[in-house]
Design a protein around this nucleic acid. Structure first.
Lengths: 342, 342
DNA sequence: TATGATACTTAACACGTGTTAGTAACGTTA
DNA sequence: TAACGTTACTAACACGTGTTAAGTATCATA
């Protein structure tokens, strides 16, 4: 029974109508030119046979795949950082509601220079979401300019891009004020990725600007660079604290990095928050349960994913979007990893 | 230029051959009945036009989608636990090498009872990987019995299932010996999921058996159940320690739960590892950098995903697999969260 | 009864590919 | 020369669907 696939032809024969009628009944509920009785007969036949339209046939005929692509610009981050899985969850939720499918494509050194071709040019997908895009990604720029529906989670600062991003200002200025109020003056930072990675750079310069508001500076020597993992955060922090031993507070590029920062502090005999205050970024689900509970800037990554998916769906439907670039707010969540400067 | 799609017909015309020849040149390098010169001409024409075969057309004609499905049995876990992203990474790596695509499908309360239909019956995928399958999943059993290529990451104890799983015995018995050697006699556990969840149950009974080897028991009262998140681990641990205040060591169902366990210990004024020893499970990338560094049973989740993907690919190719059920070993990683019993 | 108008249904085409049976040209052998 | 294999290619079909122009009853109206 599973061996013989059921086609619309079988349904048509069983219901005593033509194949066209079957297609009309099943897809176009608005076509009035069909009697209720025929409708019912076709529906019953389809149900009895367990008919499921072949998707390849549909794609070919209709031109729509009912599938969106999802490209993770650096696949290696996926297992290391807690952020992407949340975005992914948000995207998945929306697509499930809408009955869309998600084609997941990771990208790494083994991928060619243009991972979009394989999805777009072969018409496997109707639209695309790109996570953590890099601004030097030329094929991506070309894709955006070609008007193919693309939504970025992140940004490459292209005027025509559609994107969902965070304006970190509110959260970071609140975090900075907290530290200043607690008496901190020498504040450092461990970025979550190397210079050139837009999102990471943006956080560093946002912190710089916020500090300037209070008449403070963060010299280049007070910044070190990690590489997504807690381990890299650990090593970066050790370097940083050796170079700048009198720092009393550290911004971690994100919560995963913050784990490494706190670990390095412990290894160097500094207590958090007594000797060193630490502020994270992201507010991952477990961050409230770390030791000490992490003070961090909360980002609703699930919502970010959901909004990106909804924006893409609007694009696919040809509906206008309110704004090409959406920016979400974030806010400080005070917990236990910050205290008065020593 | 992007508006007019290039078909094999265009390539054929440009190369001065028939469409069939184009298809033969591009897909069947073994077909000797083609002159080198024609081959070259077709290839050049295809390159010049930027020809990419339409995937729907290929699927329909060839019956192969070059896509595998990936079902996450409980989508809500994705953003919470660090395990699935790792498996996902392993699967992605293998598929990227092989040029296969991955269709990601989350499952939650809004999904119907049979999420497989939408992928399998519509022929969207050639094979399927199911993460964290539940043994009461009847449609899944039916799918396995239908001989459709399915590989489980986990197990539902079906004799015909193909699966990649862990034999936790080695790691857990080593962990148990460690605790016993340290003088612990009253040992509890916080499972990572409610009873009925196979993988979680398996770990509980594995720990029970290991303890029995040493003449120890773990009564039902010494086990509590969390629900994947660190937060749930925190609450479960509080319940557990209130019920059994004289426990000196706790097995956490996984590392995420361990974060909650340690947090609850701190909240109850117990120091880890001084007053309470904690052992995790998974060895997530950040676990070595927690405070204290987590002693845990290491599982290579990336490899698990990669093996599952490779097994599925063998099934798709019709090649025999060495064993329907593969079991990977795991080993204890000693760090700082265990110490002598108080 | 002829004439439209209406309600319903279908034949026929389109989507773009992979594959098989078959043809034409060409040389080779009996 | 006729029979025969070999090489290089192609016509024609198959895959399963969505859609539109055209078709056939049915029925009311003049």
């Amino acid at each position: 029974m599973a061996s013989k696939r059921v086609t619309s032809h079988d349904v048509a024969r069983r219901a005593g109508v033509s194949r066209a009628t079957v297609s009309l009944v099943l897809n176009r509920s608005d076509a009035v030119a069909l009697s209720q009785e025929t409708r019912e007969r076709v529906r019953r036949a389809a149900a009895e046979l367990g008919y499921r339209p072949n998707s390849a046939g549909r794609m070919l005929a209709s031109g729509s795949t009912e599938t969106i692509g999802l490209i993770i610009s650096d696949a290696a981050i996926l297992p290391i950082d807690g952020f992407i899985p949340q975005v992914l969850h948000g995207i998945g939720q929306v697509n499930r509601e809408r009955g869309l499918h998600v084609l997941l494509e990771g990208r790494d050194s083994s991928s060619g220079p243009n991972p979009y071709e394989a999805l777009v040019d072969t018409r496997r997908i109707d639209g695309l979401i790109v996570l953590n895009p890099r601004s030097d990604d030329e094929p991506l720029r070309a894709l955006i300019e070609s008007e193919f529906p693309v939504v970025l989670v992140g940004s490459i600062r292209h005027p025509k891009e559609h994107s969902v991003n965070f304006s970190s200002r509110a959260g970071i200025s609140a975090a900075t004020r907290l530290l200043v109020d607690l008496g901190h003056r020498r504040i450092g930072m461990v970025a979550f990725a190397a210079p050139g990675f837009v999102a990471a750079d943006a956080r560093v310069s946002a912190v710089r600007r916020a500090l300037q508001t209070h008449g403070l500076t963060m010299p280049d020597d007070a910044v070190d660079y990690a590489d997504f993992s807690a381990e890299s955060g650990y090593h970066a922090t050790k370097r940083l604290l050796q170079r700048q031993p009198d720092l009393t507070a550290i911004f971690a590029g994100n919560d995963t990095i913050a784990i490494g920062v706190m670990s390095a502090a412990a290894a160097l005999g500094r207590r958090v928050p007594g000797d060193l205050s630490v502020i994270g970024f992201d507010d991952l689900p477990f961050s409230a349960w770390l030791n000490p509970a992490l003070t961090t800037v909360h980002i609703d990554a699930v919502q970010q994913g959901a909004l990106a998916a909804e924006m893409l769906i609007r694009l696919l439907a040809g509906k206008p979007v309110d704004a090409r670039q959406v920016r979400l707010d974030c806010e400080l969540v005070e917990r236990k990893s910050c205290a008065g400067a020593p």
